[in-house]
Amino acid sequence: MAASTSTDTNVEVLRRMMLIRAFDSLLPDLYTRGLIRGSSHAAIGQEAVAVGACAALAADDYITSTHRGHGHTIAKGGDVNRMMAELMGREDGYCRGKGGSMHIADFSIGMLGANGIVGGGFGIAAGAALSARLRKSGQVALCFFGDGAINQSSFHGVANLAGIWKLPLILLCEDNRFAMSGRAEQMIAGGDPVKRAQAYGFPGVSVDGMDVLAVRAAVAEARVRALAGDGPTLVVAACYRFQGHFSGDTQSYRSKEEMAPWLERDPIPAFRSRLLAEGGLTEAEADALEEEVATSIAEALEFAQASPWPEAAEAWEDVDG
């Protein structure tokens, strides 16, 4: 089990997990009300991986995210107002409405972007790690990716390069068991993705992705290795996607019986109970935290709806060639 950390940080860890849950829980309603279009993917059930990993990073460390990326941005300290505005395509969105759900980025907090391409973050994260090495900046880069992405050729290319160059890179596999409908055991040769690290000569670590402190401890250790010049670490966090791939997913590929034991291990009530039991939090404080989170999301919705649409002429901005 993870080393204990300060209570303040643990409360913040819980708050961020709650914020992710509240943000992503709103998505179906936003679709129904016609407030957002396009694709968006909820990370409900996977909050402990995003928050645990980012809690182990420094403020100026880099992360790259995936198509299921709202949680990563919130975990790194992103602003839910600008995220919500981006989902709605508004001017005050992180990308002035041009990116939407799958391309939220905040370079000011080292969040180098969610990505619509499965495995699209490998090169970017490794490049950021190389850049940190060349600039001697003392930063590390962490790449979030799913169990589906580990089969992309970009994983091989980057794992090999990061391995030989010993880049300060953390490869964090969110093994949520599904690549859309493709099951990890069906799609990954050799079974457990963590075994792949051995081939590249760096450690592979399996961690319980439903335990936020366990994730934080594993990533903290990987970060120490990275900064010591010992190269990358593959951390595979076993978790579960509680909802469909996207809002309209009928989920014909899995049964309620299969989901039940995972739903029982929901990382947010588990961590809340743990903090209550350890005395780091009272019931009243926990309820207040939930209220605070609900207020933040309501305000984000208001902020986004009040934000203007981008000017039509902006469609031609920021592209050359």
Partner: peptide, 16 residues
């Protein structure tokens, strides 16, 4: 691995 060469270059270019 040309994909990795350009992929890593994009990340380096984004970060200074």
């Amino acid at each position: 691995n040309e994909e990795a060469i350009v992929g890593v270059a994009v990340g380096a270019a984004l970060t200074g």
